[in-house]
Design a protein around this nucleic acid. Structure first.
Lengths: 110, 110
DNA sequence: CATATATTTGGCATTATAGCCAAGTATTAA
DNA sequence: TTAATACTTGGCTATAATGCCAAATATATG
């Protein structure tokens, strides 16, 4: 892999890595309803606020969310709506895997 | 996050994690052209074959690729074409980030 | 059978991630 | 100014991911 190709896939991987965590996926999903403050996200996730804050900074660093401070609270918003198209495909992969498992077990029974 | 919600996002995260690596993204991209043997992928990536083999087993474990042995070679294929829709969005995120950076530097100059 | 090629697996050292606590910053309110 | 709330950052430990080498497996070929 030459340097240019590597840079291309490194950049893409950075964004996907930012999404590669259950809490961060949950955050993205919640943000599809509209902006949310850290406190609300923290409550729903059920982790330490510092942990959630770090998750948010990873998403922000990847350019997936943006933040706005209003008073003492910080509100996060999805920057790029197309992230949603991900979930449809992910679900397709999961369904396909489930289907394969059923087929496998069926084949073994005969 | 209750157990059911956690399971849902864990499952999704597992698939996204499988994609969250430059070499694996490169593999997926190469497989869009059609099936490829491990030797060819290894050559293009330029890593140890054992490393590439492990990457492939991660993709396979996530249900993203399937393999078929023919003779002494193993050919890998993309299982689910919608993975491609990912890249479009990823590029959109990257472009958006680049745009923001330009805007920022412009704002500072004035 | 011996050898060569293609691939996978085990093992290990290195590095990266995750998550909690404690401490720091910022804003609001008393 | 003091106190309270919301959030971020630093630091630390635990766990997971990466990548190479060596060894094991499978298949083809002489």
């Amino acid at each position: 892999m030459d340097a240019k190709t590597k840079a291309k896939y490194d950049a893409r991987a950075k964004i996907i890595k930012a999404l590669a965590h259950p809490s961060r996926l949950y955050i993205v999903d919640m943000l599809t309803e509209g902006e949310k403050c850290v406190c609300e996200l923290t409550e729903k996730i059920g982790a330490d606020m510092s942990t959630v804050s770090k998750h948010l900074s990873i998403l922000k660093g990847a350019g997936l969310v943006s933040d706005e401070k209003r008073g003492t609270q910080v509100y996060y918003t999805l920057s790029i709506p197309c992230v949603l198209t991900f979930f449809g495909c992910i679900e397709a992969v999961l369904k396909d895997s489930a289907l394969r498992q059923v087929e496998m077990s069926g084949a073994c029974r005969r």
